[in-house]
């Protein structure tokens, strides 16, 4: 089981727990504001953009080339940006803090 904290643009902290699936799906199921996941998780819509807590980048790993190409053109992107449909939930993510980018 992994505990993941989402911090929205309204500074709301939402703590969710799961053991599988994508981080995007978890956020959408629980109505995290700013995570829409319009394309269902195929890396097409960029509506699940988060900034990973800088100290925890090793937990999520790096974005793939395709994901980086998407993020490159997002105005709110920085070096900690990820599309969270591309982050699979596992024990490894326990304690992860993500800031919703939009």
């Amino acid at each position: 089981m992994a505990k993941i904290t989402f911090i929205t643009q309204d500074d709301e902290n939402i703590v969710l727990e799961a053991d599988s699936g994508s981080v995007m799906a978890l956020a959408v199921e629980n109505g995290v504001s700013g995570i829409d996941g319009d394309c269902g998780g195929v890396c097409s819509c960029a509506t699940c953009h988060v900034h990973v807590n800088p100290d925890q980048v090793s937990q999520t790993g790096e974005a793939s080339e395709i994901e980086k190409d998407m993020l490159e053109l997002d105005d709110n992107a920085n070096e900690y940006s990820r599309l969270c449909c591309q982050i699979e939930i596992s024990e490894k993510l326990d304690g992860l803090i993500l800031t919703v980018a939009n």
Binding site: D38, C39, V42, C43, S44, S64, I66, L73
Partner: peptide, 24 residues
């Protein structure tokens, strides 16, 4: 079941398709 599918069938950027939710 294409997993990575960064298509632009609904356009891209500011002007992406307003009706995409309805279409999907």
């Amino acid at each position: 079941d294409r997993k990575m599918n960064p298509h632009v069938g609904f356009g891209f950027g500011h002007h992406n398709c307003l009706g995409a939710t309805h279409a999907r």
